[in-house]
Simulated assay, not measured.
Amino acid sequence: MVAGKTSTSRRLARQCGLATIDLDAYIERRERRAINQIFAEQGEQAFRDMETQVLDEFAHKGPMLVSCGGGIVLREENREILKNNGFVVYLQVTAEQAVERVGDVSTRPLFKNLETARQTIAGRLPMYEDVASVSIDTVGKSINVVAQEIQEILEKEGVLCLRQG
């Protein structure tokens, strides 16, 4: 939640010459409504069904960076898709940093306050660690620094990343 996934993915895509997709933004465009509207009108289960469908769709496309919402790990099926179809980078964020970054909480249906953020992060941590190929601590780091760290890891691991310029 608000770890910088989309911004980091965009920066890394430019650095590596890869396509990138933000699953939440894709769902919003496809459904022609915001995620918080989907939650309000159809419930979390319906949103999670959509999320699984698009994750599976993009997992089988060519090399690309996929930015997933923080709740993607809640389903075992999604964790298996992630583990079996890519190199997964977990961007770590503290609850305090999440609260600082979140801005408009009305766009975040599962984000209410610091205590909720703490509980959400703690509850999801084992699932994040289960799927992560690597974890990056984002505390106090800019998007550029985080993207550079990831690029260096991808190159070291032999995962496709073509250094630009």
Rank of each mutant, 00 (worst) to 15 (best):
residue 39 F to G: 03
residue 158 G to W: 01
residue 162 L to R: 14
residue 14 R to Q: 15
residue 45 Q to H: 14
residue 135 S to T: 12
residue 68 C to H: 04
residue 2 V to E: 08
residue 108 R to E: 13
residue 147 A to Y: 03
residue 91 L to Q: 05
residue 142 S to W: 10
residue 68 C to Q: 03
residue 20 T to N: 12
residue 32 R to C: 06
residue 54 V to Q: 13
residue 163 R to Y: 05
residue 150 I to E: 07
residue 84 N to D: 15
residue 7 S to W: 12
residue 16 C to E: 04
residue 101 R to F: 00
residue 9 S to K: 03
residue 45 Q to F: 13
residue 39 F to Q: 02
residue 129 E to P: 10
residue 100 E to S: 10
residue 2 V to Q: 08
residue 160 L to G: 05
residue 64 M to C: 11
residue 140 G to M: 05
residue 96 E to N: 07
residue 20 T to S: 14
residue 75 R to K: 14
residue 44 E to Q: 11
residue 109 P to T: 00
residue 44 E to H: 08
residue 153 I to T: 13
residue 76 E to L: 09
residue 156 K to L: 07
residue 132 A to D: 02
residue 72 I to W: 13
residue 9 S to Y: 07
residue 17 G to Q: 05
residue 145 V to K: 12
residue 163 R to K: 10
residue 60 H to F: 06
residue 19 A to I: 01
residue 6 T to H: 10
residue 97 Q to V: 02
residue 48 R to E: 09
residue 164 Q to R: 15
residue 53 Q to L: 11
residue 144 N to M: 04
residue 85 N to A: 03
residue 85 N to M: 04
residue 29 R to D: 15
residue 57 E to V: 01
residue 23 L to R: 06
residue 113 N to W: 09
residue 137 D to I: 02
residue 35 I to D: 05
residue 152 E to K: 13
residue 50 M to H: 13
residue 54 V to E: 14
residue 93 V to E: 10
residue 41 E to T: 10
residue 27 I to A: 00
residue 72 I to H: 08
residue 56 D to A: 09
residue 134 V to Q: 09
residue 29 R to N: 14
residue 103 G to K: 08
residue 58 F to Q: 12
residue 16 C to G: 05
residue 47 F to S: 00
residue 110 L to K: 11
residue 90 Y to I: 00
residue 113 N to Y: 09
residue 106 S to Q: 08
residue 145 V to R: 14
residue 108 R to C: 10
residue 34 A to C: 07
residue 107 T to S: 09
residue 59 A to R: 05
residue 91 L to T: 06
residue 108 R to P: 15
residue 86 G to P: 00
residue 5 K to P: 11
residue 110 L to P: 06
residue 37 Q to V: 06
residue 146 V to D: 02
residue 136 I to L: 04
residue 28 E to T: 00
residue 102 V to Q: 07
residue 94 T to Q: 07
residue 105 V to D: 09
residue 62 G to Q: 11
residue 121 I to S: 08
residue 61 K to G: 05
residue 68 C to V: 04
residue 151 Q to N: 02
residue 92 Q to K: 11
residue 56 D to M: 05
residue 112 K to D: 06
residue 120 T to M: 14
residue 3 A to C: 13
residue 49 D to I: 06
residue 161 C to K: 01
residue 128 Y to K: 03
